[in-house]
Amino acid sequence: MSRLWAESWRIGLGADRVEALRLRPFTRAQVAAQGSASVDAGAAPLADRVAAALGLALADAGAGAGRGSATVVLSNELVHYAVLPWQAGITRPAEVQAVAQLHFQRLLGDAAQTCSVQCHEGGWGQPVLACAVDNALVDAMRAALAERGLKLASLQPLLMAAANGLRGRLADDAALAIVERDRVCLARWSGGRPVEVASRRAGAGANTPPGTVVAQELALSEHGAPAQPVDVLLVGPQARWSATDGLGARLLNPTPGPLALAGEA
Rank of each mutant, 00 (worst) to 15 (best):
G168I: 05
E217T: 11
P85W: 11
P210L: 09
G257R: 10
E77W: 09
A243E: 14
L186S: 03
T71W: 00
T71L: 04
S116T: 12
A100P: 01
V83R: 03
A32H: 12
L46A: 08
A249E: 00
P157W: 09
L46H: 07
E196Q: 15
P194T: 00
A215T: 09
P210T: 00
R3M: 05
E121R: 15
R250W: 07
H223N: 11
G203H: 02
T255N: 07
G66A: 09
Q87W: 04
E121F: 04
L107T: 11
L56V: 15
T91V: 14
A177D: 03
R183T: 13
A15N: 00
T255R: 10
R17E: 08
D48R: 09
A163W: 14
L150V: 06
L74Q: 10
A57Q: 03
R10Y: 02
E147I: 07
L261G: 05
A57N: 05
A143R: 13
G62S: 06
K151Q: 15
C119F: 08
A29R: 15
L145W: 01
A187L: 04
S36E: 05
A70I: 01
A219M: 04
G211F: 02
D139E: 13
Q126N: 11
S69M: 13
G66D: 10
R193M: 14
Q216E: 15
R142W: 00
P229I: 00
A243G: 00
R17A: 12
Y81I: 12
R193D: 09
L137R: 01
S2C: 06
V184I: 07
L4N: 01
R142H: 11
W189D: 08
W241S: 10
A59E: 13
W124G: 02
V138F: 07
V31P: 05
R22E: 09
D110A: 11
A41G: 04
F26S: 12
A130M: 07
S2Y: 08
A136W: 02
Q34C: 04
Q216K: 11
A112Y: 04
G236R: 00
S199I: 04
R24A: 12
A37L: 01
R181V: 09
A153K: 14
L84E: 07
A144L: 01
W86Q: 09
G191M: 03
A70M: 06
P237A: 15
A140P: 09
L46W: 08
L23K: 06
A132W: 07
S2N: 13
L145H: 00
T71E: 14
E217L: 15
V232T: 12
L261K: 01
Q34S: 15
S36V: 06
W86G: 07
T91K: 13
V96W: 05
A20N: 05
A162K: 11
E196V: 10
V138A: 07
G192C: 06
